[in-house]
Simulated scan of single mutants.
Amino acid sequence: MAAVVLAALALSLGPLGTPSSPAGTPLPPDRLRQEATGALESTRAVSVHVRVREGRHTVEASAGEAALGTGRPVPNGAHFRAASVTKSFVAATVLQLAAERRLSPHDTVERWLPGLVQGHGNDGSRITIRHLLQHTSGLHDYDSTELTGRTAPEFERRRFDHIATERLVAAALRHAPDFPPADPADPEPRWNYSNTGYHLLGAVIEKVTGRPWAEEVEDRIVRRLGLRGTRVPGDDPSLPKPYAHTYHRFAGSARYTDTTVRNMAWAGTAGALVSTSRDLDRFFTALLTGELLPPRELAAMRTTVPSNEEHQRFTPGLRYGLGLMRQPLPCGGSRWGHHGDLEGTFVRTGFTADGRRSVVVTVNGRTTDDTQLLTAEKALQGLIDRMLCRR
């Protein structure tokens, strides 16, 4: 775990621009190594990998080990489960369909999925696609650990199970809504993160296009941008090589469980994507600079509402657009991106509004302890802020 490695350093090919530095200089490799090591110590994780880009400069560094007890560093171009970062890919796909006038964000769920969202106070005729994209539908968020396991022995028994997303949606709809769908005129509507809504968006994509959502994401984004390390794995439980192992300390366990190999088909449009740091950088940069969406749809995606108190505790100032997160930068302006969390791993991204500066952080080694999670979150948020605000 003491191993620290500089993964890559590319030469400058163009001018830079950031909120605090209109003409910055390349990040020194030693500085990023120090940041990775500090993040490893603060998070008490197994490994940390950081990728920072300024214009065309790219520097990567890692700390810790790719597999416990081996001393091997996190490899260059490591694949990882992007978890909820998947939502930004799905939202961009939905908004492309809106730009093509094949659907409207104001369409109701009932229009595209008649009879699916009903009962226990749930009403698909009152919930729009925009509500689903922005987590303002009020739909209850399912607890996936009820099916995937809350303890290490349960996880080991269920890690290869195929769990249909329909089961998760049905489980969520057995609950009453957390609140009524947002009023379009309310500038600060009630908000609650709901994976359930993104599973419904996957079903809408399939109803509109007649194709699986994964194929639409592949054709519209992955292949178009040349994201060679990004895919939807389906029932394949493995990660493509190279990769670093993920580890989770479940409640009641004093030891890490290796969670790397598992069936993630259940996560679907809410979090199934496998990707790399380079690919996430390419995707969000293309998204924010208008390469994937026309101006109207991009503006809609970047129109945000405040998150709820629970999320504010971990990520102060967090506002949510349509599948896109926004947070204030201490040097002025905002950073954009999306977070991903899964048993064993954190994925954190941060991009300046113009896409000129970016940070992608992956951390392997996670716990269920709330205090430690908060400490880790503060460390990761601070790292991203320092990199984006670097003078």
Rank of each mutant, 00 (worst) to 15 (best):
A99L: 05
A98W: 05
R262T: 03
P153D: 03
R167S: 14
G69N: 07
H140Q: 11
P105D: 11
T230Y: 02
G337L: 03
T43W: 09
D161Q: 12
S358V: 05
V217L: 15
T349A: 04
T371S: 13
T285K: 12
H135P: 02
L200I: 07
R319P: 07
H57A: 09
V347E: 01
S21D: 14
L173G: 07
R282K: 09
S137N: 07
L132N: 02
L173H: 01
V204Y: 03
A270N: 02
V59R: 13
R335D: 02
L68F: 09
R223A: 15
G138K: 00
Q34P: 08
G14N: 13
R111K: 15
D354K: 12
L173Y: 09
P28L: 01
C389Q: 07
A299I: 00
E35P: 02
G344Q: 01
D236C: 02
Y193W: 10
N122Y: 05
R262Q: 14
I221A: 02
S20P: 11
Y320W: 13
D235R: 13
F283K: 02
Q372T: 07
Q134K: 04
Q96V: 06
N76Q: 14
A254V: 10
A376I: 01
A23S: 15
R44G: 07
T259D: 01
R282F: 03
L32G: 04
E110N: 05
P22V: 02
T371K: 14
T136F: 03
H162M: 04
K87G: 08
G115P: 07
T367N: 13
A66I: 03
A182M: 04
R348W: 14
N122L: 09
D107K: 02
S275T: 13
E309C: 04
T136E: 07
E291P: 02
R211G: 08
A36S: 13
D178Q: 13
A92M: 07
S194A: 06
M387G: 10
E110P: 09
A83F: 10
V74I: 05
R356K: 15
V59T: 15
L16N: 02
P240M: 06
G55C: 14
T18D: 10
P29W: 07
G138Q: 00
D236V: 03
R159N: 06
P15F: 08
A67H: 10
F80C: 06
R44N: 13
T136V: 01
E206D: 08
G340N: 03
N308A: 11
A353W: 08
D258E: 12
L298I: 05
L373W: 05
A244Q: 05
G337Y: 04
V204K: 00
V274D: 10
F283N: 03
S125Y: 03
I384L: 12
P105M: 06
S238L: 10
R31C: 02
V5R: 15
L287Y: 01
H162K: 12
T18N: 12
G332Y: 06
G252H: 11
D341Q: 12
L374I: 09
I127E: 02
L97C: 09
R296V: 13
R224L: 06
L329A: 08
L132K: 03
W112G: 09
D107R: 01
P295E: 07
T18F: 14
V94R: 01
S62A: 14
Q327Y: 09
M325A: 15
G64H: 00
R33T: 14
G290S: 06
V360P: 01
T151M: 06
A182D: 07
R157P: 11
Q118F: 04
L298F: 11
V85C: 11
T269W: 07
T86L: 10
